Computed example of a mutant assay.
Amino acid sequence: MAGKKVLIVYAHQSSGSFNAAVKDAAAEVLAAKGCTVEVSDLYAMQFKAAATVEDITGKVKSALHFRYAEETKLAWEAGQLSADITEEQRKLTDADLIIFQFPMYWFTVPAIMKGWMDRVLTLGYAYSHEKRYSQGIFKDKKAMLSFTTGSHETMFSATGINGDMNVTLWPLQNGILHYCGFQVLAPQIFWAPSHVSAANRSTMLDGWRTRLEGILGEEPLSFTPMDCFDGEKGFQLKPEVSEKHATKEFGLTSGIHLGKPLPPYNQMKAGV
């Protein structure tokens, strides 16, 4: 792990929060392993969440019919993105591992972190029609979600009131991270830390520190490779792939389930 670079994208308002303790533990352990660690503290930076025309410093192609993705691609190519975006892109380009640290808000990331994703992961820089999913631009980088929940683990089960956490994580881990090509490591989930004892929170942190010791050597989560889909037929699974899995008990992934039961822990544990 020595010599590797880590970017922690952190979203919490309080330096006394459990999320802050988790972020600090990651920075401490990884630095001790010889990694260079940068932290983007989004609230402290007052990072702008809204993706707007102000993200472009030059002229836009079409002000009347402004299309953010296309316009920021042109701006990126011309070196005309706003300074806060280009600085985060520099950090991301340098990093071998990106950790997103946050409290789960409404079953997803906080608005300020979603804004980081909307603005920093621009078309051309982070993905293109040709370079996405398993053929994505960031296929040599690893990324992971590390977050706290407000609900206990049982509530995020297949029979729990919140539904299966594997389903909740699919849009974030497949639709954002894997879409950009990242090797997605299993998430680090801290279940309802505000509803457990200080001793239990300490145990959670100890488990996180232990995991961090070998984090860069972990096997990533499994996603269906892009070459399993037919691009000329609306990116549907190729018939031979569907036939191969026709007799299997579970679907391929939490999202591409073939109408079968979801594969257990598909978005939560590697090698499952």
Rank of each mutant, 00 (worst) to 15 (best):
Y127P: 09
Q101G: 01
Q135P: 00
T149H: 14
R132G: 04
T36R: 14
R119K: 09
L97H: 10
P103C: 09
I85L: 15
T93K: 15
T149M: 11
F107K: 05
I98T: 07
I112S: 09
F147G: 10
D55E: 10
F138P: 10
R90Y: 01
K59V: 01
I56A: 09
S151I: 00
C35Y: 11
W76M: 09
K59I: 00
A69R: 14
D41H: 12
T72Q: 02
F138V: 01
V60C: 09
V60D: 12
I98S: 05
T149K: 14
V29P: 10
F47W: 11
T159G: 04
Y105E: 06
F47M: 01
K114N: 08
I98M: 07
V120N: 02
A26R: 03
A158P: 08
E54R: 10
A143F: 10
T36C: 03
C35Q: 06
A49M: 04
W116Q: 04
K73I: 00
V37E: 07
K142P: 05
A143G: 11
I112N: 08
L121V: 00
K139Q: 13
F147P: 10
W106G: 13
H152A: 14
S82W: 05
M155T: 11
Q135F: 06
G79N: 07
K142V: 00
V37L: 07
W106T: 13
S128R: 01
S157L: 07
V109F: 05
A143Y: 11
K61L: 08
S40V: 02
G34N: 05
S134I: 06
E54H: 12
E28Y: 07
D140T: 08
V39P: 13
F147E: 10
S146N: 13
V37R: 06
K139P: 02
F138H: 13
Y125L: 03
F66V: 01
G79V: 04
Q46Y: 09
F138Y: 10
N162C: 11
S40C: 05
S82R: 05
T36Q: 15
R90H: 12
A69T: 10
A31Y: 01
F47E: 01
D41G: 14
A83T: 10
E38I: 00
L123C: 05
T52I: 04
Y43C: 03
A69P: 08
G124L: 03
E28F: 06
P103R: 13
K114Y: 02
L64R: 14
V39W: 09
K59D: 15
V53W: 03
K141E: 03
T93E: 15
I137Y: 07
W76H: 15
G34A: 07
G160E: 09
Y43P: 04
A63R: 14
L42N: 02
Q135L: 09
A111I: 07
A31K: 15
F100E: 01
D140F: 00
T108M: 12
Q101K: 01
A27Y: 10
M144F: 10
K114W: 04
S82K: 05
M155F: 12
P103S: 11
A51M: 08
K73G: 00
E70L: 15
F138G: 09
I85N: 13
Q101W: 05
A25F: 11
G79Q: 08
G160M: 09
F156E: 03
C35S: 08
R67F: 09
F100P: 05
I137S: 11
L121K: 00
Y125D: 06
Q101F: 04
L123H: 11
R90N: 12
L81Q: 08
A111Q: 12
